[in-house]
Design a protein around this nucleic acid. Structure first.
Lengths: 218, 218
DNA sequence: ATATAAATTTAGGCAAACCTAAAAAATAAT
DNA sequence: ATTATTTTTTAGGTTTGCCTAAATTTATAT
């Protein structure tokens, strides 16, 4: 059940592209992320599929199975723990850590990960603010935060909206309600407006005052 | 100038077999250590030779070049620093560390090694008591110790012998003088006698009273 | 010194993970 | 709806690091 480094990288990439809602991911997207060619991706998808880590149907993109998701989350856990270690203990700045963590995340030793976690006193977020899954691959729900504070490229789920009927009406019109999945596509620094992708479908631009009134969790 | 993991393992193995005095190492010995077959070793020796990391002449064994030795020492440095980390910080017992350190030593990042070294406050010996080379690949000479205290399988260089003329005569007869390279082949626990390999050539058994009067450094 | 044994190298193959180029399927555009 | 475009897959190739079996070289033993 141990994956090769390459298989792990594919799982991780699929996981990151699929987002929380485990959307189907395309061959080309994977190739682009990994810097490989589509043909190589197809080959690997067959291998991962044979291991039941992904659901793969020709020409149809892939989704992670539960088992695949768990594997991916454990790799993410390792990656983020090492990032935390590099910043907190070795005093790396957080733009130096990615390359090294990419290597460290593939070290195979459950003991190592758990001892590292203890040594670091069970951090819940990595230096980029991303949550660190626990040893079972579960991400503890983060406390909710204002949408306006969500970083670019992050996905979040709508949690609460203030009960101003006018705002609620507007939000429902553009397709935002509790439980909606939002991805922050762009944040415009001059006016704090945000371009959102709603439920993976529609793009909408919202003003900072609206973003300020939507509460989400990652 | 960056090696593959496999190349690094070959260099390290050659280094460990060659000992301080850089003796020629045989194809079969390398194969046995690495759990590969002789044919695979031959193949790799050609690659390392092409990179001028070893001197290789068919049927003649190999020795490390200066460049190869330096590479090997840097890998050893990483290995031992990680071992120290695992024991001192992550509370591994020292029989659990080898497998993990074997993986960690191949992480490619000079910055990582140097920051780790600082974080650990520049340890000079790993948990097995082996010296940790510095960033230039130099092993600081350890303080001299009595031959009787040297661990089995370790190599040491004769440093000082007490000036008892009788002892000196005896030692010179069996081929031991200042600068001789000794490898401790066996230590007999019942009488503390030691079987030594002198300068990689002759085997000699010495009693504990003699071993007690020879000072060496690793 | 010659035969036997052991060590080493060569030759030919295999699996993993990549590639290019061509074929097939799905999507988009007129 | 049919063509054009894009995406994906298939069909060979390449490289790295390993393998087995056979050939060669070196070492050992009578």
């Amino acid at each position: 059940m141990i994956q090769t480094t390459s298989e792990e990288n594919y799982l991780k990439t699929i996981f990151h592209h699929a987002g929380i809602s485990n959307n189907a991911v395309t061959t080309n997207d994977i190739a682009a992320s990994l810097g490989t060619k589509a043909a190589s991706v197809t080959e690997m998808l067959k291998k991962l599929s044979a291991q039941k880590l992904i659901r793969y149907k020709k020409y149809n993109g892939v989704t992670l199975t539960d088992s695949g998701t768990k594997q991916a989350l454990l790799i993410v856990r390792k990656h983020r723990l090492w990032e935390y270690f590099l910043v907190e203990k070795l005093k790396f700045s957080w733009d130096e850590i990615h390359e090294v963590a990419e290597q460290l995340e593939h070290i195979q030793s459950e003991t190592l990960v758990e001892r590292l976690d203890s040594f670091l006193e069970h951090p819940r977020f990595d230096p980029h603010g991303d949550p660190i899954p626990d040893k079972k691959g579960l991400i503890k729900k983060s406390d909710s935060q204002k949408l306006i504070d969500v970083t670019e490229k992050k996905e979040a789920i709508v949690n609460l909206v203030t009960d101003q009927p006018e705002l609620l009406r507007y939000l429902s019109k553009i397709g935002i309600s509790i439980g909606s999945k939002l991805k922050v596509m762009e944040k415009n620094s001059f006016d704090q407006s945000m371009l959102l992708l709603i439920n993976g479908k529609n793009k909408v631009l919202i003003s900072s005052s609206i973003a300020n009134n939507i509460s989400v969790q990652l």
